[in-house]
């Protein structure tokens, strides 16, 4: 067996593994977790490793995946947005009411539904960045307010949103792939580039790492926070439109608890609640893990009551493991002062 050595051999193991640090290692851990979970389910269910099943999972990824982009950005700045589930419900309600009750064309109604999320996001951002209310409090309040508004506007009723063009968003397929999945992947590509190759992305990490230092370096912290919360609201509203499209209706109680799933996926993906750390790749893998877990557990006929338990445990295990690893590397590598 002959293999050509392309690179000169490096002398110390530490330099050879130097690239395997921090975010990268977190992501690799996650991918391994994902593979292990898949392997376990594959042994438990014959149906699990079929293309049909993967497309099934794919259809459920879009909403959580898209909303998790906005959540990752917000968490990276050191904030949080609890209102995403309510905003998702609001956008569906606004769209259906404008279409059915006010007679506005569905396309325009959907855009306005999306903009309702943009507006809520902007207001969240304004309260956090300008009025300086703690983001947890701000968005906890808007979670309640927006959910309430969705009920008020719809009078608690489920509204039909039965339109073929609109259904395409949530149920359509292009070349055999769910449209929502394609949109999600495209958004990830765009935002991954934004986060790693633009000034805007870099600034978000800096703001999360140290808002004071960022401000004194000449970054407008206020403007960046406004943009990030606005984006998060908009993406949540977009997720809400996909839900309405999948259900062909809008309900004020749609997407209850979405914030939990989305934050769980994001944190699972290595984003720090303290801000300054996190990658969208990690978030994407986190979304995959949570969704595959749901899917696999359903197939193995484990009671759905246990699914929430398992979801929470996986989150704790993954994040706990990462914390222990960070502690170890800090102790060994940073011990010398």
């Amino acid at each position: 067996m002959t293999t050509s050595v392309r690179e000169p051999r490096r002398t110390t193991p530490s330099s050879r593994w130097a690239w395997l640090r921090g975010d990268r290692l977190t992501t690799i851990n996650l991918v391994l977790t994902f593979v292990i979970i898949c392997a376990v389910f594959a042994t438990q269910s014959q149906y699990f490793l079929t293309i049909e099943n993967f497309l099934n999972v794919g259809r459920t990824l879009g909403v959580v995946g898209i909303v998790a982009i906005g959540m990752t950005l917000v968490l990276v700045t050191g904030g949080v947005d609890l209102s995403v589930g309510s905003v998702a419900a609001l956008s569906g309600v606004v769209t259906s009411i404008l279409w059915t009750k006010s007679g506005i064309p569905l396309g325009l109604a959907a855009v306005l539904g999306l903009l309702s999320g943009t507006l809520v996001g902007f207001l969240n951002g304004y309260l956090v960045a300008v009025v300086r209310i703690n983001p947890l409090i701000t968005t906890l309040a808007s979670l309640s307010i927006i959910r309430g508004l969705a009920f008020v506007m719809s009078e608690g009723q489920t509204n039909q949103l039965n339109n073929d063009a609109f259904k395409f968003l949530g149920r359509g397929e292009i070349a055999g792939l769910p449209v929502s999945l394609i949109i999600m992947i495209s958004l990830y590509v765009i935002f991954i580039l934004v986060m790693s190759y633009t000034q805007f992305g870099r600034n978000l990490y800096a703001i999360g790492g140290s808002p004071d230092a960022s401000r004194l370096a000449g970054i407008s912290v206020t403007r960046h926070l406004l943009i990030v919360y606005t984006l998060c609201g908009t993406l949540a509203a977009f997720g809400g439109l996909i839900i309405s499209s999948q259900l062909a209706s809008s309900a004020p109680r749609a997407a209850v608890g979405l914030e939990f799933t989305v934050i769980a996926a994001t944190v699972l993906g290595g984003t720090s609640l303290a801000g300054g750390k996190g990658t969208l790749i990690g978030t994407l893998v986190g979304v995959f893990i949570l969704r595959v877990l749901d899917n696999g557990l359903t197939q193995t006929r484990i009671s759905s009551f246990y699914q929430d338990v398992v979801g929470g445990l996986v989150l704790l295990l993954a994040v706990g493991f990462d914390q222990i690893r960070l502690k170890l590397t800090d102790k060994l590598g940073g011990g010398r002062k």
């Binding site: 190759y197 633009t198 000034q199 805007f200 870099r202 600034n203 990490y205 800096a206 790492g209 140290s210 004071d212 230092a213 960022s214 004194l216 370096a217 000449g218 970054i219 300054g276 750390k277």
Partner: peptide, 29 residues
């Protein structure tokens, strides 16, 4: 430590922090 640096960021990113006019005229560096 509080106001000068983003301690969790690398030396490279701290030096170029908010200095993008030369590095990234269009926002992409």
């Amino acid at each position: 430590k509080v106001n000068g640096l983003v301690l969790g960021m690398s030396v490279r990113k701290n030096i170029t922090l908010s200095n993008w006019d030369k590095l990234a005229p269009l926002g992409v560096f």
